[in-house]
Design a protein around this nucleic acid. Structure first.
Lengths: 204, 204
DNA sequence: GCTATCTTTTACAAGATGTAAGCGTTGCTG
DNA sequence: CAGCAACGCTTACATCTTGTAAAAGATAGC
């Protein structure tokens, strides 16, 4: 999950306290950046219980740290989606499951949609793209089977659905919707956008 | 249009060169921040042909400058929407016009959706809200007349449509779509989201 | 216990944001 | 046209933040 900073070195042996520090930094950054995306490196280090230089010892720059966070959350989600066996269920059901997983991602890692962090640091677009690629494949399958409207390109629908999720999360953050309300309108909107035949929004 | 920085002082008399400086700063900031949202105040000042301190003479802080930009663009758009007489045409037509105006706003002022600028500086949420309020009213009218699906709350649909526009603009910026393609899928998606009966996407 | 590794301390450099005072310049206005 | 007030420019300073660097102390692993 929480991968080593340098992706180049395949499996460098680290001392236990080093791993502990890295984990503490990532955890502290997750929570603190979720509240204040412009927190300084010093604040991050203090929250993690280490000094600023220790942070730099593991992450060469601020962008690298943020990149590790995004990478971590993205990989986790891709894994969850893969484990959900979306290819073996009807497209509408698969989309519902995908929305559910994606919504949990946004809720658990609110820092992901913090404006200052939204600009993807170069290098880790791969994971982000992997997430949308999964959705795009799902949409394309649904269009082939006739469950989704093929009028709009699958690539667009994928990013549009993700955009709707971000909008919904923003509404929660702004206090305009509760989390449950937001997920309901998000799901309904995403299904409608994909042209799915309107079905009862039964959970599960 | 380009209003004075301090909204408190109602109509303070300014010298002509002061107005010229303010205008040069705003214009330069528009273009430069559109390209590089993290441009420094010094770069902004140089682009405007003034010194950094002159910028600070008119805008007390960076956020204040950005706020003035957003305020300016927002007011301009609200004005354009008001002038479009959206209340006197069928809701679907009105929505099409609104999408057109909104799209032009995004295209003309790409800096508006730059991540670093997206966090609205406190104080000028009013104009932004005014823009969505217009859309929300439009959607609500369409729901009353039966042209739009009333299943989803109008407030959500309004922000969701705007979110779709931002997503579409992002796709253009990322080079995944041309501007024309993006507007097409954006319009189609927005209409579908509102539950508008599918009509030929005739322009005008 | 020894040693490589990790953390901390201390120091430095660069860049950005703001603040402030002094002086020259420009544009109104009488 | 002359004077005054407003305005812009220069210079200087303070602070915060990022990032680099080296040396000394602490710790884990063997």
């Amino acid at each position: 999950m929480t991968d080593a900073p340098e992706a180049a070195t395949p499996a460098r042996r680290r001392r236990s306290d080093a791993r502990r520090s890295i984990d503490a930094i990532l955890t502290a950054a997750r929570t603190l950046l979720g509240e204040r995306p412009d927190a300084s490196m010093e604040e991050l280090a203090n929250a993690a219980g280490v000094t600023r230089q220790t942070v730099y010892a593991h992450f060469p720059s601020r962008d690298a740290l943020i990149g590790a966070l995004i990478e971590s959350a993205g990989a986790e989600t891709v894994e969850a989606v893969d484990a959900a066996n979306l290819d073996t269920v009807p497209p509408v059901t698969a989309l519902r499951r995908y929305l559910d997983i994606g919504w949990q991602l946004i809720r658990r890692y609110p820092y992901l949609l913090a404006p200052a962090l939204a600009r993807t640091p170069p290098g880790n677009e791969a994971t982000h793209l992997a997430g949308t690629a999964q959705l795009e494949r799902l949409v394309r399958r649904g269009q082939r089977t006739g469950d989704f409207d093929p009028a709009l390109p699958a690539g667009w629908l994928a990013v549009a659905v993700i955009g709707l999720g971000i909008t919904a999360a923003d509404q929660v953050a702004a206090g305009h919707l509760t989390a449950d309300e937001a997920f309901t309108v998000f799901s309904t909107s995403a299904l409608r956008l994909c042209g799915a035949a309107s079905e009862p929004s039964a959970s599960g």
